[in-house]
Design a protein around this nucleic acid. Structure first.
Lengths: 140, 140
DNA sequence: TATTATCCTATCGGACTAGTAGGTTACTAT
DNA sequence: ATAGTAACCTACTAGTCCGATAGGATAATA
């Protein structure tokens, strides 16, 4: 399950990406529009800034803006920053690998093989989708 | 991330499915072979029995056995029983649907659409893989 | 210099995870 | 009958994480 942190982060990024010009967007604007707690969103955007996805500007007229083109930001980057591993087990994670305590040999582990399949199909989708795709308004 | 409960449950089921005959397998046997706490595994197998995946027999020569052919038990059934929803958001879950507090209209939600793609690709794999696939010993 | 808005640290209740403990029930073999 | 075996069941717990909240520090603008 995706945490609310990640979900809110994705919605906020989509909101920022939808701005036509690249003027900074304020936390308050996003929080109100997307029904997110102002303070919670603050900490989320801070994380995204520290990871290099967003830039920020203080003071009047300040806010957050994208550092790259939306089409150059894959969903994998965002989710790994906010949620951590994409894989369902640490032992099949590419970026957050950890050995299992209980498995003497993970190549012999049946669950391992299954979760690699799941990871690969998920990665395929999350790598292919970028923030530009996320920002497209729904046709409803 | 998959909980240890689910991971252990999958490994235990694979172990049970690997028995050539259908004589009951004891908790202690699985716990030792798979490096799982006996008591913890006990509660996991109990859940699987209550959900109708396993049958059990008490006393000497007792233990757990499959109620169906391994090939007739898709991974979706097992994971939904032990882990809960397969989807990454409650609002895209087929079996555990819940509306999001923050979304006035989920059809207009960009994250929703993305997570439906992820759900569908994951479901495809977990429906296609059965316990029989999980039980195949690695060629290594 | 006042205002605006991000930056940063610290805290907190509640829920969940991964077990542990200890006794009860049912089945089998002697 | 009875001893032994193995699942059944309830309750408890330490630790961790999530979703926030609080309050002030810093930087930019007017």
């Amino acid at each position: 399950m995706l945490s609310k942190k990640t979900k809110y982060g994705l919605k906020a990024l989509a909101f920022i990406a939808r701005q036509q010009d690249k003027t900074p967007v304020q936390i308050a604007t996003i929080a109100e529009s997307e029904n997110i707690s102002h303070k919670f969103l603050e900490s989320i955007l801070l994380t995204l800034r520290k990871s290099g996805i967003l830039g920020s500007k203080k003071g009047k007229g300040g806010g957050y803006y994208l550092l790259k083109e939306a089409a150059d930001i894959p969903m994998t980057d965002v989710i790994r920053t906010l949620e951590g591993p994409i894989a369902m087990l640490p032992c099949v994670s590419l970026n957050f690998y950890e050995k299992c305590d209980d498995c003497p040999d993970e190549h012999a582990c049946s669950v391992h093989k299954l979760m690699i399949q799941v990871r690969d199909s998920t990665l395929k989708i999350l790598r292919h989708n970028t923030l530009a795709d996320l920002a497209i308004p729904s046709k409803q």
